[in-house]
């Protein structure tokens, strides 16, 4: 069995790291998406414009790179109920746990924060267990 480096994943990941470094170095902010979004739900004066701009440019990015034949995948589902439940759990979980794959997994882990390392291990393990059961019940 041969293994080749997934260059897309590596390059994309490096862009995420560069983005997080730029946002923190120049503005002092954490590039955690759940945190940035939550700051728009619970707005504080003078702390919303940069969040809105970050989210809007993040959404537009997919449009800008589409001409390079890099496209969003076609996503479909058998169960909107499952998608809704997943969204609800991701929303509640990222608030209680203070971050998601970006805030904990990139910025927090990069800072060697113990809380973020623990959070990342916990959400990875819990997602792996869920996918195991999905496979067990033939959902994958």
């Amino acid at each position: 069995m041969s293994f080749s480096i997934p260059w897309h994943a590596l390059l994309g990941g490096m862009l995420l790291g560069l983005s997080a470094a730029i946002l923190m170095l120049f503005s002092g902010k954490v590039a955690g998406i759940s945190g940035i979004v939550n700051g728009l739900i619970q707005p504080k004066k003078g702390d919303t414009a940069w969040r809105a701009v970050f989210i809007i440019t993040m959404i537009l990015s997919a449009v800008f790179i589409a001409p390079f034949d890099i496209n969003l995948p076609l996503v479909s589902t058998d169960s909107y109920l499952l998608i809704a439940l997943a969204g609800l759990l991701v929303g509640v979980g990222t608030r209680l746990g203070n971050g998601c794959t970006s805030g904990h997994g990139i910025v927090g882990m990069g800072r060697f924060s113990m809380r973020s390392i623990v959070a990342t291990v916990v959400f990875m393990l819990s997602a792996i267990v869920v996918v195991y059961f999905r496979q067990l019940f033939g959902a994958i």
């Binding site: 390059l11 995420l16 730029i22 701009v53 990015s61 800008f64 995948p73």
Partner: peptide
């Protein structure tokens, strides 16, 4: 800064296939 970081982040998410 937010615009540059947002563009890079969005591109990173799509290119990486996350």
């Amino acid at each position: 800064v937010a615009a540059v970081a947002g563009l890079l982040f969005g591109a990173g998410m799509v290119i990486s296939e996350m």
